[in-house]
């Protein structure tokens, strides 16, 4: 009889959460994202002003006690617009990445698992889609669907999906070779069982990491579409849209480009760092009973 694994060995390993919290960068990231999420959800209670209320007596005013971040060309409160803009930015990037994964993952899984002509067919379309620059594809799709935030999310989701398909295909092909997949076949598992119980759970980690890393890209893509007038439509507030206004009034009020620009950069940094954290978090060695 082999000795049972010593219980100390298990206790000595610190919990994943504790390891994560020891990293200062991770703490700052999580704190920022928590704050952002709170602002995005509670913008209507937190914002000092109505984000679409015009005040033509106070246009392009710099920061003041009444307007901490100043006002825009129509006298709207920049801070309130920034807060209201957080929701569309954050939730649409999450939605776009989820959509991209929902489209790309099944195709990549099938291509990698079944191989043969299924793989060839999916591979061709994936290659073709990848040869469109992402934002170009998104602009094309947004142009067809019409200009709205929902359509921008769909456009970004479609544009990002071939990346997921290719990644999923590669990891599926690697996992398919694992002995435990063959072992499961030996106990009578059929293709669907193998895919859902063995291949997918073990191939999904890179996908989740990729999703985390893509959140930042999706955020910037959504901001780009809104900046170009293909996403959130005025007068609704969005960070990209605010930058579009700032561009027009750049000579008279250059300070208008800072609040939404910094918000975008900080959020994208936080999302990217979240992706890195996901990579460490999802290492299968960190699972424990």
């Amino acid at each position: 009889m082999a000795a049972p694994a010593s219980p100390q060995a298990r206790r000595r390993r610190p919990s994943r959460l504790r390891v994560l919290l020891r990293d200062a960068g991770a703490v700052v990231t999580l704190a920022y994202l928590a704050l952002l999420l709170f602002v995005a959800i509670a913008a209507s209670w937190l914002a000092p002003y109505d984000p679409v209320r015009l005040d033509l007596t106070a246009t392009l005013a710099g920061p003041s006690a009444a307007h901490w971040a100043g006002t825009d060309d129509l006298g709207r409160d920049v801070l309130s617009r920034l807060m209201y803009g957080a929701g569309p930015s954050v939730f649409s990037s999450i939605a776009a990445v989820m959509l991209a994964a929902m489209i790309g993952v099944p195709f990549g899984l099938m291509a990698g698992f079944f191989g043969g002509w299924v793989d060839a067919a999916i591979g061709r379309v994936t290659d073709a889609l990848l040869s469109f620059p992402t934002i170009l594809l998104a602009v094309g799709i947004a142009a067809v669907l019409g200009t709205s935030l929902t359509n921008a999310v769909i456009a970004i989701g479609i544009a990002f999906s071939p990346g997921f398909a290719r990644l999923m295909r590669a990891t599926t092909m690697a996992v398919k070779q694992e002995l435990y997949v063959e072992a499961a076949r030996a106990i009578g598992a059929g293709p669907v069982w193998l895919l859902l119980r063995h291949v997918l759970p073990n191939a999904v980690t890179p996908v989740i990491v990729n999703a985390g890393l893509l959140l930042g890209n999706a955020l910037l893509a959504e901001a780009s579409l809104s900046f170009l007038g293909l996403g959130v439509q005025p007068p609704q507030a969005s960070w990209g849209g605010m930058l579009a206004r700032a561009l027009i009034y750049m000579e008279r009020a250059p300070e208008l480009m800072y609040p939404p620009g910094l918000a975008l950069v900080l959020t994208a940094l936080a999302f990217n760092s979240l992706g890195e954290m996901a990579r460490r978090w999802l290492d299968p060695r960190s699972l424990s009973g």
Binding site: A183, I187, R197, P201, P284, L287
Partner: peptide, 15 residues
């Protein structure tokens, strides 16, 4: 008819 493989670790789904 069942089989036992050489590598006991690789034959088990780690998750």
């Amino acid at each position: 008819f069942q089989i036992i493989f050489q590598d006991p670790h690789a034959a088990l789904n780690p998750r």
